[in-house]
Amino acid sequence: MKMPKIITKNLNLWYGKFHALKDVNACFEDKRITAIIGPSGCGKSTLLRVFNRMNDLIEGVKMKGEVLISGANMLAKEADLVNLRKKVGMVFQRPNPFPLSIYENIVFGEKIHAEKIKKSRLEEIVEKSLDSVLLWNELKDRLNKSALSLSLEQRQRLCIARLIAVKPDILLMDEPCSALDPQSTQRIEELMRELKKNYTIIIVTHNMQQAARVSDDAGFMLLGELIEFGRTDGIFTTPQDKRTEDYITGRYG
């Protein structure tokens, strides 16, 4: 059996006095897509943002427990956030390319991390990254155009390409398709299936069909608790917990 990529042990998180994550225990396996589902406000985005410590930007956040990523505890005081975020990339709900050129967006990561920057290397990175999100042929002639001139779907792909350029192991996706139309959503999902060959992907979505379509594993969250976690087939066909079943069959949410 493969070693899980991310393990959480008794993970608790508070925003001030609000207890947002309660004793979350889960294992996320390598080279698979894991979906986290649940109604709004259940803590699924919060859980995702623990994995790259984006919650740290919010004032008054307190975390307890352990998050082991490739074996190292990321909640430890000495955890290196810059390296963590290099290894664990995040795609946001609204595509957020920087207001720079397409080229500059992709080489951003290399420019902030590399000691020496070679132009030929940057060009290689741009081609490879855009190619892996199937944008290279579309955009190769307009790399110097502003990234804000792209369509929403292209922007989201560009954001994924920008991540891939930093060579992460894990891709966190926070409702990556909620701003997109159904066709674009379908194409991004195809891209995710392609990407899982090389990356561990965790996606947060409140679109249950999407979770069922793309994920291998799934977790259901409610009010800060991870109610059920397992193979997607199992969760959707034979949920063990009554609450999971109620949510999946649409009784609330």
Binding site: M54, L57, L84, R85, F92, N96, F98, P99, V166
Partner: peptide
């Protein structure tokens, strides 16, 4: 400046 830009940069490992 939209907060998303800052989040995006930090999520890529920028200081």
């Amino acid at each position: 400046v939209p907060k998303a830009y800052k989040e995006g940069a930090l999520a890529l490992g920028a200081t």
